[in-house]
Design a binder for these strands. Structure first.
Lengths: 203, 203
DNA sequence: AACACACGTTAACGATCGCTAACCGACCGA
DNA sequence: TCGGTCGGTTAGCGATCGTTAACGTGTGTT
């Protein structure tokens, strides 16, 4: 086991509220007093749990990048075929986007606010995650050039991460319906990789 | 004509640099001194051109929302068919995303930092823009339920707005190639609306 | 019973923030 | 020539920021 700190419910509570506030108003838009108030303690009390404000953001971003990457690796390993792997990656990413909405928002928004070493780590985890997608998507759509596949993967991330903009009160029947629609849209986007570049006009 | 202010190159220069900086480091992460320095004047000199810092953000967001909406309306009106209209909307949105990258980033990131009246205006413009998309996409894919179409439109926005994450140094040959790929992916996503919800598994 | 430590508190510091005040040179029309 | 406006400067204000210091309190250990 790597030496992980004790979970200490308070830390998790602080991280959860900090993530929500950072996502709502931006890292610099939230004061430590506000984060403290959200968990029932006041301002400087946070420093019994975190070294500084940046450390909270770092732990959030490293955490989600790591979990995304690890879950992706697991799902790919368990898949019986490349197509199944793509399906599993999409499903996993949708779960993250729907369940950890604030984190998904932070993940591609506040990366530049990190100290150098943490930022490098997060970028590395993100790159590995993207590579997993690119690898299996290329197997499902072998005719597509690699740069196109990479662009498509990033674009599908943007598609799946659009969840926060939908809000919980979109007209969709429920979580499962939202997930199903996003899943179909993502597959549809990837399917477009099989259309050669010279036949792109639809009318 | 509505009484618009004189353009006064300096204002545009300030707005352009402010947009870049806001997109890079967030609205609260950029000081007025920094914006001034970016245009060669120092800090408070900005107040000869803008009433306050929020006014810059407001002008940027109202500006892009309005231009997106107006350009969309024009393109839809000029289209000979719904499919052509969807195509034109996609093309127009891609142009915005590629040419005004910082603005596209700000557009869905810093909306909450606006004073109430401006925020309401921007939201109204955004809603009108979305409605244009929903209207024509529904005509091209009449079998899809309205909430699904709306979700798909938001998702495609996310897809097209993923451009900033690609960076200018993705492996794609050039701007036209990037645009073409995004266009195909967007059409592919919309095409998935024709697949009924009960036949979604691909393996 | 004495102590240490975990987990809070309030007060306050230095830095930085947005913004105003006061001033100034360049240009320009009467 | 003179006054006004336009677009800039520097100094400095009040507020707020992240963070530290000093202190208190409950809880468990010895």
């Amino acid at each position: 086991m790597t030496s992980t700190k004790a979970p200490s419910n308070r830390r998790e509570q602080i991280l959860r509220e900090a993530a929500r506030l950072f996502a709502e108003r931006g890292f610099h838009g939230v004061g430590v007093d506000e984060i403290g108030a959200a968990v029932g303690i006041s301002g400087p009390g946070l420093y019994r749990h975190f070294a500084c404000k940046d450390a909270m953001l770092a732990e959030l971003l490293v955490g989600i990048s790591g979990r995304l990457m690890a879950a992706g690796k697991l799902r790919v390993a368990e898949a019986a075929s490349p197509a199944e792997a793509v399906d599993a990656l999409i499903r996993g990413h949708i779960d993250f986007a729907l369940d950890d909405r604030p984190l998904i928002t932070l993940h591609d928004r506040e990366l530049d606010r990190l100290p150098d070493s943490d930022r490098k780590l997060v970028r590395q985890l993100q790159r590995q995650y993207v590579e997993q997608w690119v690898e299996v998507v290329r197997q499902v759509h072998p005719a597509a050039p690699a740069p196109e596949v990479r662009a498509a993967v990033h674009a599908v991330f943007g598609l799946l991460n659009s969840t926060p903009h939908l809000g919980p009160h979109n007209g969709l029947p429920g979580r499962a319906a939202t997930a199903a629609v996003l899943h179909r849209l993502a597959l549809g986007a990837f399917a477009a990789l099989d259309i050669p570049a010279d036949r792109q006009v639809t009318y």
